[in-house]
Design a protein around this nucleic acid. Structure first.
Lengths: 203, 203
DNA sequence: ATACCGTGTCACTGGGTGGTGACTTGAACC
DNA sequence: GGTTCAAGTCACCACCCAGTGACACGGTAT
């Protein structure tokens, strides 16, 4: 149609993104992508050599994870001082960023139900981001030796991620209603409580 | 074959269970179920009127969630005294039980990526179980008014669930290795730390 | 002009899926 | 023994999917 290879490739990649954000990996196939992109599917095979490599290209070009800088944002915008302050701040920023990234949410869903080469690679990228964040945190206030801050962070981040992924399909969890901001505020407050008492607690 | 309607229905339901535990809801279809059960698929339509109602039957007959009694187990086996003790105990029991129930894990995965009538019903059952557990907990030691124990529990339970669901496809999260028991022990310890300091912390 | 080659189009195969109608088998009942 | 009816079998439909080979177009270099 447009007779422009690069543009066509871009349209295909864009179509992948749209389909992914809207209906997840479950219904992602060559035909659907070609339809969405308004392109013949044979071009997908020509330019990307099949679905797996197309998805790999897609994964490479996208920025599904904020950099640590993006996660932190403007440092002067927070009055965080202690390690606990920073941890609470990062958790709240993380949950806000995740909420704004439907694609990232889909990738997390995908990691949860398929363990192939691509999801493992995506998981590695994600984990590197997580470790960077931990390193940033440690620079803000060194970890108390009697507490396993990485493990504690893992539990809390995992909790945030799970609650976030749930809300798309179901609006209540353990009696907490996530359809209104009030539910999220309770979670936010709980995270703050946990972090302050756990990380800075004087034993 | 066996010419016994009830037995055939049972075989079909059993096949659903096997397929579910082994390959999840993604590849669950009428043909696959019939194959697995060694039964003609037409019988599925005759006896269950299609996949949705079959799954509904399956959901009704199964006990995918432990009762609170099962969750608690033998009360005399623990020396828990305070509310925090009990909370930590329940969390550890919960995670152990979940680990032993691949079907339950699949249901949780399913809830995460499909929001239909059935998953919502399953979610309701699950939430009732969660609320029962909270009630049990409150009988063991009333909730401190300055802390949102349900919200804190929600975060921790969500964290456990997410970490559990991840381990099937990926073995590392935030630098913690879940392929060995050591990783889980760190999580367990982190949960204990959080609960003790958060719930019983003297502010 | 023409031969060439990259881009895009079309038509097709093979296989899996959900779903249905027509058939056979077997046992209980008269 | 023959009838009846539920339980089980078989063959088929329409549809969607991944993947491929053959063809049409349209610039470009010669």
């Amino acid at each position: 149609m447009a007779r422009d290879k690069e543009e066509t490739k871009a349209r295909i990649l864009a179509a992948v993104g749209r389909l992914l954000a809207e209906s997840g990996f479950k219904s992602l196939g060559v035909n659907a992508i070609a339809r969405e992109a308004g392109v013949d599917k044979v071009l997908i095979y020509r330019y990307f050599e099949g679905l797996p490599l197309l998805l790999q290209s897609f994964a490479k070009e996208g920025d599904y994870w904020p950099s640590v800088d993006e996660l932190v944002g403007d440092e002067s915008a927070t009055d965080a001082e202690t390690l606990a302050d920073w941890m609470a701040y990062l958790l709240s920023r993380f949950s806000a960023q995740l909420q704004e990234r439907p694609m990232t949410q889909e990738i997390l869903r995908w990691e949860l139900l398929e363990g192939n080469e691509l999801t493992r690679e995506l998981a590695n990228v994600r984990d590197r981001f997580a470790l960077d964040s931990l390193k940033f945190l440690e620079e803000k206030g060194s970890f108390p030796p009697d507490k396993d801050i990485p493990a504690i962070s893992a539990v809390l981040v995992a909790g945030v991620v799970y609650l976030m992924l749930r809300t798309k399909s179901s609006s209540t969890f353990m009696g907490i209603d996530f359809s209104s901001p009030a539910g999220w505020q309770r979670i936010q407050a709980a995270l703050d409580t946990i972090v302050q008492l756990t990380v800075d607690g004087k034993p």
